[in-house]
Nucleic acid binder design. Sequence first.
DNA 1: ACACAATTGCGAATGGTTTGCAATAGCAAA
DNA 2: TTTGCTATTGCAAACCATTCGCAATTGTGT
Lengths: 125, 125
Amino acid sequence: MKDILEKLKSNGYKLTQPREKVLELLSHNHKALSAQDIHSFIKDVDKASVYRTLNLLEELGIVNIENFNNEKLYCLSADPHHHIICKKCGFSEEVPCTYEHYNFSNFSNVQHQMTLTGVCNKCNK
Amino acid sequence: MKDILEKLKSNGYKLTQPREKVLELLSHNHKALSAQDIHSFIKDVDKASVYRTLNLLEELGIVNIENFNNEKLYCLSADPHHHIICKKCGFSEEVPCTYEHYNFSNFSNVQHQMTLTGVCNKCNK
DNA sequence: ACACAATTGCGAATGGTTTGCAATAGCAAA
DNA sequence: TTTGCTATTGCAAACCATTCGCAATTGTGT
């Protein structure tokens, strides 16, 4: 957390309340959240600011994005992992990243992003 | 192609011109296309119909979706594969799916979807 | 405490996707 | 082949997430 704030500062960005609140929320939350989720948790931060903050955090590599149903979900980028989300109830769980590097002869700077969905045991009954 | 049309029919759906045109385009095209790409290729099919068709094809498992920059890209689901897309010029290439099954103890019916991006050699100069 | 630039909040604009509905087209049965 | 029923289409309007422009505010270094 402190190191993240430092990272912002060292890149010339200010430590503002909206940024701290978004980071605070993400660090206390174990599942990936959409911009709207985040805004609904901290309503005193304007949604435009939430979006701007998330875009900035992504550029700096502080958050990772996962796509679920064409919705961007954000989470702090700690250990590389993915989330598996239950299609019925939305329950989610972290899954370690088992991605293995393929030999991308024609590409460099390869980044990947994965969406995993399923039906959780609870919903399966 | 014929088998796809059969699949539509056997599920009680009609073989309409919009559906045939969308399938025709997808089968002649080697990269994943967005709904808008598709509509721009076949302008005589209304965009609402393109979206409806794609949603139906997805439900039936006839097309796969890949997310790129929060844009849904569609391609026929043949051999499982992903696309890697150059962030600078949009060039794309197929990559075989090397996804390995993880033991999802709490989930069933797991599906995955991956987005790969990079910079192609051409753009790297 | 001051001053300047970065950042915010607000509201309006944007752009992709969906929806409601009347007109049309596909399909099965006669 | 013609008829009739229903699914499907095209169109326009609605929706909803995200972005933008700009004046007001906040953070930071001096």
